[in-house]
Design a protein around this nucleic acid. Structure first.
Lengths: 140, 140
DNA sequence: ATTCCTGCAAAGCTTTTGCAGCGCG
DNA sequence: CGCGCTGCAAAAGCTTTGCAGGAAT
């Protein structure tokens, strides 16, 4: 069994533990997020999951994404120039690169010097978010 | 003449140079942003500038904010939990702290180890954005 | 005269909410 | 049976666009 399967099963187990029902639609959404690391928007998820679930509703997508975020299985990314929210299933802290030309989001594997901080100027830190904006290597 | 006045005049001069007309409404918006470092939303700017310009339209606020962003006088901040865009007139690179309780945004004066980077993993960096999320000292 | 700006209204988009029906335990 | 989920439709909320009138050069 691959690590990917383990990851998906982990999320499903987590859902069950939290008393959130595991429906086929939800599994399809989790599956899509895990297998396509493209930081999709709710609408992109909808378009794709619709292929296997033609009757699925956008409301169900949002509903599921909300549950998944609540249990900490996914993260919202708000860096797009267009007022859109992107989602990802990667939990390990990391940075992003946003290309203002192709509008794509890339994961950046770089060590942040702030990651050890627990507080800053008296404020309690729970999350650290960082991203670079510019032109990606494909667009250069 | 204070530094604040100089800053506002700088922006106005910049507008003129770029061929963007300097109207009383626009000056009022710039003035508000410069004198109230509260990272307001478009609507908050509207509410406040309305006090001096009762007839101003929200469309004019957005129009002006767009021009100001184009000439690089202001920056959009997209870190709010509520899908809102905040604005600030501070240009020097810095970080933010977002309190998930009071929803306020604070400026954080901290040195980022990435600020010297010009590229990362082959991608050309133009901007670096970082913020912390948690509970601010006032809410603790 | 031309060009740009204002302000009103309408439209656009993403996201949220309400609700009837369904399914699983 | 009860509870939660789905999906449709409508609503909500922020932002953008179209357009007529107006100001400035």
């Amino acid at each position: 069994m691959s690590r990917k399967m383990n990851k998906i099963n982990e999320i499903i187990l987590n859902l069950k533990e939290k008393g959130v029902k595991v429906t086929p639609q939800r599994v399809a959404i989790i599956d899509f997020l895990e297998k396509n690391k493209i930081h999709p928007t709710a609408d992109e998820i909808y378009e794709n999951v619709s292929k296997t679930f033609p009757s699925i509703s956008l409301a169900t997508i949002y509903n599921t994404l909300e549950k998944l975020e609540e249990i900490g299985a996914i993260t919202k990314i708000k860096i797009s120039d267009e007022n859109k929210v992107n989602y990802e299933a990667i939990l390990e802290p990391h940075h992003h690169f946003y290309c203002r030309k192709c509008k794509k989001i890339f994961d950046i594997d770089i060590k942040c010097s702030f990651s050890i901080l627990k507080e800053v100027e008296g404020n309690k830190i729970e999350e650290i978010h960082g991203y670079f904006k510019g032109i990606c290597k494909n667009c250069l």
